[in-house]
Nucleic acid binder design. Sequence first.
DNA 1: TAGATTGTTAATCGATTAACAATC
DNA 2: TAGATTGTTAATCGATTAACAATC
Lengths: 216, 216
Amino acid sequence: MHLTEQDIPAGVIERLPIYLGALIQLRQEGRTTVSSSRLGELTGVNPAQIRRDLTRFGSFGKRGVGYDIALLVDSIQRILGADHVHRIALVGAGNLGSAIAGYDGLRQHGFHVTAVFDNDPRKIGKRIGDVVVRHVDELPQVVRDQNIRIAVLAVPPEAAQQAADLVCKAGVRIILNYTPALVHVPEDVVIHNTDPVLELLHTLYYLSRAEGASKV
Amino acid sequence: MHLTEQDIPAGVIERLPIYLGALIQLRQEGRTTVSSSRLGELTGVNPAQIRRDLTRFGSFGKRGVGYDIALLVDSIQRILGADHVHRIALVGAGNLGSAIAGYDGLRQHGFHVTAVFDNDPRKIGKRIGDVVVRHVDELPQVVRDQNIRIAVLAVPPEAAQQAADLVCKAGVRIILNYTPALVHVPEDVVIHNTDPVLELLHTLYYLSRAEGASKV
DNA sequence: TAGATTGTTAATCGATTAACAATC
DNA sequence: TAGATTGTTAATCGATTAACAATC
């Protein structure tokens, strides 16, 4: 009846990276400790919730003092599995793919884009970040050789399902889908969709409320 | 004590765009009706929840038949405020900015990128999508002239706060922040952060659980 | 009519938050 | 010590879901 690892609510896991981001920013500013109330200000999360979230994994703070930033960064990284390097296969070497490959934040968190694929002959052989673009036909071999578990889809929406099938078959377990297409994957693969439109539509609702009250 | 517009839970508003995406995909396939159970399969949302979410805004279905896709698309768009055109200011004309400006899905949902800004002289005057990149100094004027309410930040993280301040001061009400920086904005501005790293970290947790069970 | 599926209620479940004793 | 802040409990709040009557 007590808490086992499986009992952690999804909401907690979603917040941990947010805490981590703020903690890293604080660390860069040279701070060594932070209180739950300050962390709450930075992240927009209720301080009581932060404390409760953290105690699920252990006791990281000192009463009267706050949390040791370095300790908490390490701990959260370990909890998430971000305490070692993860290789990423990037599918699609267009503008979006280039932006992702060139994004420093990934490397800072141990995510290394070690393979980039495209099916456009003009892009094959080009250098993106510090890897050379290969033909997508080579994907299965490369993903297996490098034991890659994470793929990022930055292809046109029509090609999304095909690309997903390909990477799943090659053994990828996590997919970040940057296309607007709804893609189906086997049960044991986690897919995360990111579509700027969905985010815009969602925030739009609140804008309409705040502004013209013409509609009911 | 009864439902007013303000009572709609945030979770419902987050799901509406997801339904919309699936509905549009179904419409493209030529379908005219869909049941809550089929929509649930496509979106991963519980059918009962879909029905309950929708009834908050009205009665859109026919018992025994399902939902009329065209009607539901229109209705959700109207609820979200996506039934008319919204102009977007894009700050940052690098790879990411180019990807966003060139993204067709935005236009399909009525989001028109009508202004792009950068501070790199080499980029000023270049064409991205169908607009010409201007110097960021022109931003306040252009945003006011075009009555722009939405800005997308695709700048280096160091420049994020500065860019946010600038667009807020010019009257923007919604910001999509594509930098990893935590940015502060006035209370009446909605900011939405999108960082691939946060999403990766979050899904990573489940990968660690599923694979090596070496850690407790 | 019989079958299907919505709209809606009522029960469950889980997350959030206030409050405070423990303790640095 | 006095002040601050965690860890934790207990209460609240809200979201999710099962179930089914209404009805197409």
